[in-house]
Design a protein around this nucleic acid. Structure first.
Lengths: 344, 344
DNA sequence: TTGAAAGCGCTAACAG
DNA sequence: CTGTTAGCGCTTTCAA
């Protein structure tokens, strides 16, 4: 059951291994008949070039590393799907790494990826140790950031304008008459920008921000639910009429909590999420949210990375997409009456 | 920015590369002081052994291939998370491949994975070309099937008892008084077993199966919705009172369709899904479903595979899990009145 | 206890 | 147009 090597095809085709190598890589000149003969033998023998060997010779591994927080989070699984598809189309495989926003894991994965000699990296998690990332960049490893716009990292990036996303979400709520708007955000860099957008919108409407209405948690449906339950308990006498969450998972949690509390949506409580994942579309009532152009971003990020890999061009590019407000049922104004204004 | 190699370490430590190799692999005997000295130098130089080179020498690549239909499907993203975690714990990386149940892609990925010399394969999609899989097995490639129990493939497997799952879901519906139960199943092997379970339950209750109530589609929320809309149109005068779907996504689609049709759940229509993904938990009303022990299965499958890889033991093992019926709101009997019986 | 040397499968000058 | 040859970084006898 020995692997068939370049020597086997060379022998069977009656040529040298150099010739075979040339037909594999489509390089050099040679008689068409020779090329054809070799190709035929390769097929007959079902020959598969050993990437390890060619990688050893300085060719790439045709593999990229994808660092994300957690693939089971719909935003990441949807992104990963696009990324894997596009990479595969272009002849690359992708190794996934779930960092869980954990410094140890981030470093460990970077190390693993490094000694597997991946051709490039897509960093889709808010990396804790930016210096390590810059170190990789200095090592000339192609690397592009996805979704996270850390200015400290000197790499190409594709992301959505998080500030704007937070702003339009909050503004939408304000336009619907809400004045007491809570925010539950996850503990990640991108969320900070969304929070700033929220703050910015409040300010531009001249509304004071109540720090008690801002909570930070790690992203999960359950945490979202528990956090809102708690927040509500803290404000029973004067609960917020709307809540903006930094992602859909948390928003779904809020919806679940609202159900427990017997609050009707959107009358008693309006909710708006972020990401426009499948969860937003399938929620009942369907979830208003801020959409990121997932498909486009996923494609761009691999195109940028592969371009860096193949051309060697390391110039830093940034693509920032505008987020889109998706209004669904959780923020619909059901009557002409705006929500009860809880402004003092 | 040259890579540091075993030669650099050897030179700086004043030993031969053979010695360095031995400390890398923790093999051979040598003076403790030598080992310590070499280790120190490796750290100083931040030396990372090149896996390509050692793979060339017949050592593994510490990489496994994961073939699934579509990572953006929650059941697969949840499974992948577990699988990647466990693999990483054991020192392996995982390359994901979305086959989309497409023969071409399956074959293409197999080829790619093969010439990347992955150490083993987890096949979590219903592979069309079983012979190709058996071919890999004959090539002595460690391979374990996940979720799919194709008897034609001679490999170890971990799966859930799909027949039983279909049976208990349907039986639950029957116990709730339903007699006209539709089934919408995806076009995959595992679904066939679920369908057989459905048929078996009907039969054991002496209910005739109406072929018009059975539909096959590819899995997605949208397809589920459209299919149910169509099915309903075909049966306006006498619609089914319950529907069993072969996965949660389709069930969510049915829920969405029911909303459009103004059917109240579970009174007018009861729905039960399969998989117990996040979609089932967050649906409103929450979705009854058949749970697979995702976490356990994910762990088992990598443990089995890595065991095959590392021990060389190719004996075929099968682990079949019992599914669990999860009753939530979409099949709750809300009053003492059972559903209207549409039996002739 | 250590090292010299052969070779894994492939690429890339360089010769012929 | 084709082949010879010298490595790529590592592992593994085998000898010292």
């Amino acid at each position: 059951m020995m692997e068939v090597t370049i020597y086997d095809v060379a022998e069977k085709a009656g040529v040298s291994i150099a010739t075979v190598s040339k037909v594999i890589n489509n390089t050099g000149n040679m008689r068409e008949s020779t090329r054809g003969k070799v190709k035929k033998v390769m097929e007959q023998l079902n020959y598969q070039p050993n990437i390890m060997a060619s990688a050893l010779m300085g060719k790439g591994t045709k593999t990229i590393g994808l660092l994300i927080n957690d693939i089971s989070n719909p935003i990441f699984s949807e992104l990963s799907r696009i990324i894997e598809d596009r990479s595969h189309e272009k002849g690359y495989s992708v190794i996934i790494c779930n960092t869980d926003d954990d410094v140890e894991k981030e470093l460990k994965y970077l190390e693993v990826l490094q000694n597997k000699r991946v051709d490039g990296l897509i960093v889709g998690s808010s990396f804790k140790d930016k210096s390590k990332l810059n170190e990789m960049i200095n090592l000339n490893v192609p690397l592009v950031m996805l979704t996270h716009m850390d200015e400290e990292v000197n790499a190409s990036k594709v992301a959505v304008d998080d500030y704007k996303g937070g702003f339009i979400a909050t503004e939408h709520l304000l336009e619907n008459g809400h004045r007491s708007i809570a925010i539950i955000a996850e503990l990640a860099d991108s969320s900070s920008k969304r929070i700033k957008g929220y703050l910015g919108a409040l300010e531009s409407w001249g509304i004071n921000h109540d720090p008690m209405l801002m909570k930070r948690i790690s992203a999960s449906v359950e945490n979202g639910m528990n956090q809102f339950l708690e927040l509500y308990k803290e404000h029973v006498e004067n609960p917020p009429t709307a809540v903006f969450t930094s992602n859909d998972q948390i928003a779904i949690g809020v919806l679940l909590a609202a159900k427990k509390l017997n609050l009707s949506i959107p009358t008693d409580l309006s909710v708006i999420g972020f990401d426009d994942t499948i969860l937003a579309k399938t929620a009942q009532p369907s979830l208003s949210t801020v959409a990121q152009p997932i498909a486009g971003m996923g494609k761009e990020v691999v195109d940028m990375l592969i371009d860096e890999i193949e051309t060697g061009d390391r110039s830093v590019k940034k693509i920032i997409h505008d987020p889109t407000l998706i209004i669904r049922e959780t923020t619909k104004v059901t009557s002409n009456q705006p929500c009860i204004n809880s402004d003092p």
